[in-house]
């Protein structure tokens, strides 16, 4: 297979690159100074794209690659892949579900705890030597708080299972009620937000879920409410979120994703009731390795004309 051209739009993971290079003719787009020139020269030899949550395959890229057969994404979300274009052209698309579910759910709980128990603030406080001066601030209990989850797929369910171990009542919103779940269902996000203390965004990013967290939802969550986003940045109307946090209309937020990564609104940097992470939902050595293996196994299956392991299209 080492003659098959695989395009990587950005640097993602060293292990993934290494393993791809052992098997395929890998083009690292970021090492070519001129993209137009690169496409002119190599477009016909590229049969696969390996992208991720930051860079996938838009319509323009797909059009520019006449022999593209498969987009194998190093992510579970495939919002950066133009799925309609792929369907139209008979291009296969795979993602990396399941292997990252636990990590993302763990991080959701980690963010909840960090925001409620003021972990990062406490760490700053100790490191700055202020503890010696002796005052202390109360923080908020997690056990027993009402957790609302938007999206009850693999990740949403994994978050629910963990929160249950903290005796949290769980409720959720999805487009339609899931008959097999015992959790309380709300038919709108605003109702869910009005009836929980912590709101976790765990749905895929599609047109209907863009800005699913808007001003109305934020105000329903309220002054004591905490928003956790481990989905995608565009799920949240970021300027509204920033305003609500700055004005004290929202209790706090734990964010792993942002609308224009790696740009993070600087107004958030001075706030103690937010925790800001650099999109590390699946960021463990173990999981990134499992994701890389899955990307490669999907590519190999495709080129050996075997069934794909985790097809989306």
């Amino acid at each position: 297979m080492d003659s098959i051209g695989v395009l990587m739009p950005i640097h993602m993971n060293s292990y993934l690159e290494q393993e791809l290079q052992k098997r395929f003719n890998v083009f690292k787009l970021w090492t070519f100074p001129n993209k137009t020139l690169f496409l002119k020269e190599h477009s016909s030899s590229i049969r696969a794209i390996v992208g991720n949550a930051a860079a996938g395959a838009d319509a323009e890229t797909i059009e520019a690659l006449p022999n593209l057969e498969i987009v194998s994404s190093f992510s579970v979300g495939i919002d950066k892949v133009d799925l309609n274009k792929c369907r139209e052209k008979g291009i296969r698309v795979t993602n990396t579900p399941d292997v990252l579910t636990d990590d993302v759910a763990d991080l959701a709980i980690g963010l909840i705890l960090a925001v409620l128990r003021r972990l990062c603030e406490g760490d700053r406080y100790v490191r700055s030597g202020k503890w010696k001066k002796g005052d202390y601030k109360l923080n908020t209990k997690f056990t027993g708080k009402r957790v609302g989850i938007i999206g009850m797929g693999r990740i949403g369910k994994a978050v629910a299972k963990r929160a249950e171990a903290f005796s949290c009542p769980i409720s959720y919103y999805t487009r339609s009620e899931k008959g097999d779940l015992e959790y309380k269902y709300y038919p709108s996000v605003v109702e869910l937000a009005s009836n929980c203390d912590i709101l976790v965004v765990a749905c895929p990013l599609i047109e209907e879920t863009r800005h699913i967290i808007n001003r109305e939802v934020i105000d329903a969550l309220g002054q004591k409410g905490v928003l956790i986003n481990i989905g995608r940045g565009p799920h949240v109307d970021e300027p509204e979120l920033v305003k609500a946090l700055v004005e004290g209309r929202l209790g706090g937020a734990g964010l792993d994703v942002y609308e224009n990564e790696p740009e993070v609104p600087e107004e958030l940097f001075g706030l103690e009731n937010v925790v800001l992470l650099p999109h590390v939902g699946s960021g463990t050595v173990e999981t990134r390795t499992a994701m890389a293996d899955l990307v490669i196994n999907n590519l190999e299956a495709h080129f050996l004309k075997k069934p794909l392991l985790t097809p989306v299209v």
């Binding site: 991080l107 709980i109 705890l113 960090a114 972990l119 700053r124 925790v275 650099p278």
Partner: peptide, 18 residues
Amino acid sequence: VALLIDVLRRVSAGDRYV
């Protein structure tokens, strides 16, 4: 549990980084 997830997933360090 909060401290454990923080250490393993580098939460406070990640917050500093951002």
